[in-house]
Design a protein around this nucleic acid. Structure first.
Length: 272
DNA sequence: CAGCACTCCTGTTCGC
DNA sequence: TGCGAACAGGAGTGCT
């Protein structure tokens, strides 16, 4: 399921192929994603040049001349570059961005939790407006997390998954970062000490960095822009490993539900 | 504002 | 073996 590292992996994979390329056609086969794909895009994207390929949180931003195409991969989405003889679209291939040079950027998303929305230049973005800092930026640090979390009674795991607090930390990496920091996921966010906040921000950065370097985590069907899977799954310490031995102390990993999300941790290694 | 629960969807896994 | 139920999950939305 695409979290920040998977989205960044995708961005890096497609960027060299689509940057400064002109869109010849935008073909929509299934407009019913999280929000319907606007019909006018089929006409209006035509002939526009892709000026920038960026990422904000888990959103991919293709900046064109008149605005930006905001793409979210949801939990089962992927984007691939197709070159040469383009294979026939399959069941869940919902749209294609066809370039003038014949290459195709194809969006696939079985569960259709993803999105593709148009953002005209100058318009305020409902989607991007209220997002917290990027986890890998200097704005996200121990002091920031400490300050933001004061008086918050909810569990720290839920807190760091709140996109208004910090973006891009999804269910997998939240569990992994808390393991690395030795912090119990259930601990009230507001009760973390300053050093714990510093440790946690560093752990989040470390986990995300490593995942990006390994091309993301492929649990089921994630593929990067080049169609290849990620390799971070083999680096997971706790996620999805309920009952299996903790990599550090060999006691069984525990599982519980926080904020309606499965949460994994080690009772022995995550005491603070 | 904080903190929930609900919602979208389909592939996979589980229980009988 | 086959069937339906349960589960997974990002994050916007709406309610208390």
């Amino acid at each position: 399921m695409p979290e920040l590292p998977e989205v960044e992996t995708t961005r890096r994979g497609i960027e060299p192929h689509i940057h400064q390329q002109t869109i010849a056609r935008f073909v929509v086969r299934q407009p019913q994603l999280r929000w319907p794909i606007e019909k006018h895009l089929t006409r209006s994207l035509k002939n526009q040049v892709i000026r920038k390929v960026e990422r904000r949180a888990k959103y991919l931003l293709l900046t064109l001349e008149k605005g930006a195409l905001i793409i979210h991969l949801g939990m089962s989405g992927s984007l691939r570059i197709l070159q040469g003889s383009v294979p026939k679209p399959e069941k869940h291939d919902h749209f294609d961005v066809v370039l003038e040079n014949g290459d195709v950027l194809r969006y696939t998303d079985p569960r259709r939790f993803g999105a593709c929305v148009w953002q005209a230049h100058g318009e305020a973005s409902r989607l991007l407006d209220h997002l917290g800092p990027e986890p890998l930026s200097e704005d996200f640090n121990g002091a920031y997390l400490y300050e933001r979390s004061r008086k918050r009674k909810g569990p720290i795991k839920t807190f760091i998954m709140d996109q208004k607090v910090v973006v891009g930390v999804g269910n997998i990496y939240a569990s992994e970062a808390l393991f690395l920091a030795g912090i119990r996921p259930t601990k009230a966010a507001g009760s973390l000490s300053k050093p714990a906040c510093l440790k946690l921000t560093n752990s989040i950065k470390t986990v995300l960095d490593q995942a990006i370097q390994q091309g993301g985590t492929t649990l089921k069907d994630f593929v990067g822009g080049d169609g290849k899977p990620g390799y971070f799954a083999q680096s997971l310490n706790v996620y999805g490993r309920a009952g299996l031995p903790c990599p550090a102390c060999e006691r069984p990993i525990q599982q519980l539900v926080l904020g309606q999300r499965s949460t994994f941790f080690c009772v022995h290694c995550q005491k603070s």
